[in-house]
């Protein structure tokens, strides 16, 4: 069995800024694996696909779209390790 104790869940919400983020994966050639190429902001999956197509059409055989909020992320590295975790916006 693998040791999963060194990883912790990356806490994050939808990562929207403010529109929802969609993770984008492309396969550049049929023989290659899917690669993560970032995310696009869009209100729906079709809109996210259209947005990603504009950016990656010329490089991609396949395009996969996934809601950023639906990805479970576990990492041995985290920005939030230790320290003051309180909110910082003044009222």
């Amino acid at each position: 069995m693998g040791d999963n104790s060194r990883r912790s869940k990356v806490e994050c919400d939808e990562r929207g800024n403010p529109r929802s983020q969609w993770e984008v994966f492309v396969r550049q050639r049929e023989s290659e694996p899917m690669c993560h190429v970032g995310s696009v902001a869009a209100d729906s999956e079709p809109a996210a696909y259209e947005h990603a197509s504009h950016l990656f059409d010329r490089y991609a055989v396949d395009v996969w779209i996934c809601p950023a909020a639906e990805v479970g992320r576990y990492s041995a590295r985290t920005l939030s390790a230790g320290g003051d975790e309180s909110r910082v916006s003044e009222p």
Binding site: R15, Q21, V40, H51, R73
Partner: peptide, 21 residues
């Protein structure tokens, strides 16, 4: 503010990745 990295400050609709990851 969410940690998404963009190719410039105006291009908020596309992110190369997230510094939380």
């Amino acid at each position: 503010y969410q940690g998404n990295v963009h190719p410039n400050q105006f291009w908020q609709g596309y992110s190369l990745g997230n510094v939380r990851d």
